Computed example of a mutant assay.
Amino acid sequence: MTSVTRFAPSPNGLLHVGHALSAIIAHDVARKNGGRFLLRIEDIDVARRRPEYVSAIFEDLNWLGLSWEEPVLVQSEHFSEYLAAADRLIQMGLLYPCFASRSEIAAAADPEKTDPDGTPIYPGLWRGASAENVGQRMAAGESPALRLNMDGALQALKAKRGDKPLTFVEVAEDGRQETRTAEPHRWGDAIIVRKEVPASYHLSVVVDDARQGVTHVTRGQDLLPATDLQRLLQELLDLPEPVYSHHRLIKWSNGLKLSKSNQDMGLRALRAEGATADDIRRVIFS
């Protein structure tokens, strides 16, 4: 099988060496196997995306010596595809509108029950709401988020797969493969379509990976739990299952991971200080 990998940054900040690790691993896996390396701009966060960051992504990756196929997929140009996928879930009865604010959710949620991101599990404030209540809020001009009814989704999964567990293949940096069991229930009724954007990270990622024929997803260990929910969406939407590789995170000596918002170890800053692409490879693979 020809490997198709991708690097999918969000243009809401400058790339740092952690991003370089993801991009280089994905690039090298594809090139080693005679495969294809894709670049995708994940800019569904329309409030934070900046065109100058898109340009900086291209510049930094070129400086690292990476090349990719054209055209580059830009997510903000494909909202209709994400809505079509969401509509399939609606037709299956698996999405419901939610108008609850963050403060309302925080007040009602059990602080002891959190999702893998550390956010309190959604307490079901709008699960089972009447059409009248939903209509009143929409008539008032409010836009809801669409949440996944996790219990219903797991029932639909069981109807398709029986007792066969939901799994994914994880490939370690040394090439060893391990089949792991996905645990999507840990996310509760996750948001699939956001209030302000006709998509979410989880929905757009699985739709785009399928559309682009991605066979190998390479990303940091901080996104490993996201695989649980994304595997569930792939099964519900009859999308292909890629192989996953969640690499180690590059951290400061105090144990904190690098942050784009703090411009930690930014590639642009390192380049300005005289670093070379070979220097970056030595740092991240040492």
Results as ranks from 00 to 15, higher is better:
Y82A: 09
A109W: 08
D43T: 08
A140G: 15
R186P: 08
A84M: 04
L21M: 13
L94D: 09
Q230N: 14
D279I: 09
D87E: 15
S261W: 03
G175S: 09
R219M: 03
I24N: 06
L232C: 10
A210M: 04
L146K: 08
S253Y: 01
D151S: 13
S286P: 08
A23P: 12
G118T: 05
R248D: 06
L15T: 03
P120M: 06
G65A: 13
P242S: 03
T114I: 15
L236T: 06
D208M: 01
A277G: 04
L224C: 03
H16R: 12
A190W: 04
K164I: 05
E173T: 14
T218Q: 05
G152M: 06
H202D: 11
Y122N: 13
G175D: 06
V197Y: 07
A269C: 10
F79R: 11
V17E: 07
R49P: 02
E70M: 13
L66R: 05
E178Y: 13
V17M: 11
L61D: 11
G175E: 06
L14W: 09
P11I: 07
R176L: 03
K251G: 02
A182D: 10
V54W: 01
W126D: 02
D28E: 15
R248A: 14
S76W: 01
G13S: 04
V29H: 12
G213K: 01
V217I: 13
F58C: 10
E59L: 02
V4D: 02
T179Q: 12
R271C: 11
P97F: 02
L39W: 00
R6W: 01
F99Y: 11
G35R: 00
G162L: 09
I57K: 04
G266P: 00
R282L: 10
Q221P: 00
K158P: 02
V214M: 03
R31C: 02
H16T: 09
R50Y: 02
D264V: 05
P198H: 04
D189Q: 10
L166C: 14
V243M: 02
T181D: 04
N149T: 08
R219Y: 07
D222K: 09
H202M: 09
P184D: 10
L224M: 13
S22D: 14
K160H: 09
L83T: 08
R88P: 01
M1G: 00
L64T: 03
R211Y: 02
R211I: 01
V54T: 14
P184I: 12
R219A: 03
I25W: 09
V29T: 08
E196P: 11
I284A: 06
S101K: 04
G220L: 12
M138T: 15
V217T: 04
T218H: 06
M1P: 02
L237D: 08
T5L: 02
D279P: 03
